[in-house]
């Protein structure tokens, strides 16, 4: 079963970030690197990335066959996706135990979402 662990950046997480010392911030970054390594070693990591600042985002739409890419309405956005871990584990309990190791969980919170799969059933 695949699960996506989502790390959001919002006013609350930014406020927490402001209170951290340089050393704590370094520790935070190392925590993410270590977690990725631990997930990889355990054979559960499918993909994990941190995302660049939303000011670098482009909002893409296609109308009448024409692609339009514009700077997003990021000024109004109070929350954005800052990073994610896509893992493949046995069940939700195991996914939650991995999510608990994400450094952000100790300060704010992270979200665990099941990924839709292609299974089906018959009755």
């Amino acid at each position: 079963m695949k699960y996506l662990i989502l790390i959001q950046s919002n006013e609350r997480s930014l406020a927490v970030w402001e209170t951290l010392s340089d050393e704590q911030r370094m520790e935070f970054g190392r925590g993410h690197l270590q977690l990725t390594e631990e997930m990889t070693k355990a054979g559960v990591c499918v993909a994990s990335e941190g995302l660049a600042d939303p000011s670098l985002a482009r909002w893409v739409s296609v109308r009448d066959g024409r692609t339009v890419a514009s700077d997003g309405p990021f000024a109004e956005v109070k929350e954005h996706l800052a990073g994610f871990y896509l893992i493949d584990v046995e069940d939700l309990d195991e996914a939650v135990s991995w999510a608990a190791k994400v450094p952000d969980a100790a300060f704010t919170q992270v979200e665990v979402r099941p990924v839709l799969d292609m299974s089906g059933w018959e009755f």
């Binding site: 695949k2 990889t40 054979g43 499918v46 493949d88």
Partner: peptide, 15 residues
């Protein structure tokens, strides 16, 4: 077949 990266499967097997 399992829709996961090759490295992930490799780790799973060696572990």
């Amino acid at each position: 077949a399992l829709l996961v990266p090759e490295a992930t499967v490799g780790q799973r097997i060696s572990r």
